[in-house]
């Protein structure tokens, strides 16, 4: 464990807490893409298949459980909760996310570390995570204005993978056999997808104005 990875995990945890805060405090999920939440639940369920077979550390196990439980809780809340589900922007959240699932799975069959069940699903989860934010970014683009908590949620969600890139650079220089090129390339793509969001987020923060995405 290094400081970059720990910072990344904490940033990821903060993004989840901000999302839960937004939904429970405002009893609304407006501006949140249910499709992105479903993709993230799938990412965690397919990445942590080794949850009960490979014990790495208490921290690792607890964080995996937190990520799986929180992503499923958000999806269930957005689908079932009678108050929250009414505020879902159903007609704006129309990204065809099934194509992202299909593309990630095909790519995982072609490019993986080992052609085994667990490795293919691990690579699938890495590729899917890189693309999972697209429905959310499209939804924000369409709705134009971004409320503070939603903006912070997306910002922290993007920032966590940037910390992981620093972690991979650090591990590359400090560990002989370290090579995680699948995660590195995918993590880079993931972070780049946030580039324009980060730009407009920074502009709104600098001008202390409400965040506006160009329609």
């Amino acid at each position: 464990m290094n400081i970059f990875r720990f910072a990344g995990d904490m940033t990821h945890l903060i993004s989840i807490l901000v999302l839960l805060l937004k939904i429970y405090a405002t009893k609304s999920c407006s501006g949140i893409s249910l499709k992105t939440q479903e993709l993230y639940a799938l990412v965690f369920l397919t990445r942590y298949l080794d949850l009960f077979t490979d014990f790495i550390s208490v921290y690792n196990t607890i964080m995996k459980l937190v990520f799986i439980a929180s992503s499923l809780a958000v999806v269930c809340c957005m689908r079932m909760h009678r108050v929250v589900r009414r505020s879902y922007d159903k007609d704006l959240d129309t990204f065809r996310h099934y194509f992202l699932i299909l593309a990630s799975f095909v790519l995982a069959l072609l490019v993986n570390e080992k052609f085994t069940f667990q490795e293919i699903f691990w690579a699938f989860s890495i590729y899917l995570e890189a693309l999972a934010i697209l429905p959310q970014l499209v939804l924000l683009q369409r709705s134009g204005n971004v409320d503070n908590l939603t903006g912070q949620y997306v910002f922290f969600l993007g920032a966590y993978r940037a910390f992981y890139i620093l972690n991979w650079i650090y591990r590359y220089f400090t560990e002989q056999h370290f090579s995680r090129w699948i995660a590195c390339v995918s993590g880079l793509v993931q972070t780049v997808l946030y580039a324009d969001f980060f730009y407009y987020y920074f502009i709104s923060w600098k001008n202390n104005a409400k965040m506006q995405l160009p329609a």
């Binding site: 990445r47 490979d54 690792n60 995996k64 560990e175 056999h177 995680r180 995660a183």
Partner: peptide
């Protein structure tokens, strides 16, 4: 240096 465990990251 022991081989780092596969997928020891979240």
């Amino acid at each position: 240096q022991e081989q780092p465990r596969e997928h020891d990251e979240l």
